[in-house]
Amino acid sequence: MSEAEAEPGPPEAPAAAKPRRVQSGVATAEAVLSAHVAGNAELFPRIMALHVPPGAVVADVTFGGGVFWKRVPPGLYRLLATDLSTGTDFRALPYADGSVDAVVLDPPYMEGLLRAKAETRGGLGTHAALRTAYSSGREVAGAASGRWHQAVLDLYLEASGEARRVLRDHGVLIVKCQDEVSANRQELTHVQLVCALAELGFYARDLFVVVRPNRPNVARLVRQVHARKNHSYFLVFQKVPDGESVARYRTRDVPIARRPGSPGGS
């Protein structure tokens, strides 16, 4: 029998249908957003819930009046609260290397708060508490190597270097900051910090914009040159282990060690 006369074989079975993709997760309107018209006390617990697991050891090194923590359930984290009023400089923390799961940092973010001379130092009105707790001149400004806005950056970077020392690998650093105009120069502090902390070995994990709910008072305005700042930032960083590339790092869970008495601990 020729090839042309060969009997046809059995029909091919139809290709198996691909399983339909099923969307996972639960529908919700409660996702944490990146921009908020709110106060620090309202937003901070949501940032913590998203980025720091319960039971974590958290060093708030600029605790002050504890405003950030007013709406965080007591006992949810093991909080280590310090500032200058407790005798602790956030550039020289009393913690062992790699002993902390998360650090919270909110130093003075205006260069006027860091001036050494009392007659030119900022910190009146709503900034009086910052001046009293963190910017008494000799303690802060006297140790800063730069002037004007550079003094602000120096403070952040020295504190961030110390935070890296005490953080465990993949631990979280939460930084509060605000851009400013200093010496007639626009200083985008949040951008400067993201770039500088990458050099220190931190991955920029998240960013939150906080818009103040009321309009700021502006006194003695002769001619406006820059937009008046009415927003600030929470920056969330993650410690990249030594030897790993910050550029190739990916967000991962914070691997805290469960401790007796902590949520989920034995």
Rank of each mutant, 00 (worst) to 15 (best):
L173V: 05
V152H: 03
H170K: 02
R164H: 09
C177S: 11
A163S: 15
E158G: 09
R164Q: 07
L173M: 05
D169K: 09
G171V: 06
G161L: 11
A163D: 02
L167I: 08
R165Y: 06
V152M: 01
A159W: 07
R165C: 06
E162K: 03
E158D: 15
I174N: 10
R168N: 08
L155N: 12
V166G: 05
E162A: 00
G161I: 00
L157C: 12
S160M: 15
A159G: 15
C177F: 01
R164C: 02
A163E: 01
L167S: 06
A159I: 06
L155Q: 08
V172A: 11
E180K: 02
D179M: 04
D154R: 05
L173R: 06
R168H: 01
V166T: 09
L173T: 09
Q178S: 15
L167W: 05
A151N: 12
Q178N: 07
A163M: 05
A151V: 02
Y156L: 06
Q178Y: 01
V166A: 02
R165Q: 03
A151S: 15
C177N: 13
Q178R: 14
E162P: 10
V175R: 08
D179C: 09
L155R: 10
L173S: 11
D179S: 14
R164S: 10
D169H: 08
V172N: 02
E162N: 07
E180V: 12
G171P: 10
D179V: 08
L155H: 12
G161D: 13
V166L: 03
C177Q: 04
H170V: 00
R164D: 11
L155A: 08
R164W: 00
A151H: 05
D154T: 04
K176C: 12
S160P: 01
H170E: 12
E180N: 13
L155S: 07
G171C: 06
G161C: 14
D154A: 05
D179A: 14
R164P: 08
A163H: 08
Y156C: 06
C177W: 02
L157P: 12
E180T: 14
E162W: 02
R164G: 13
L167Y: 04
A163T: 06
L153Y: 12
C177E: 01
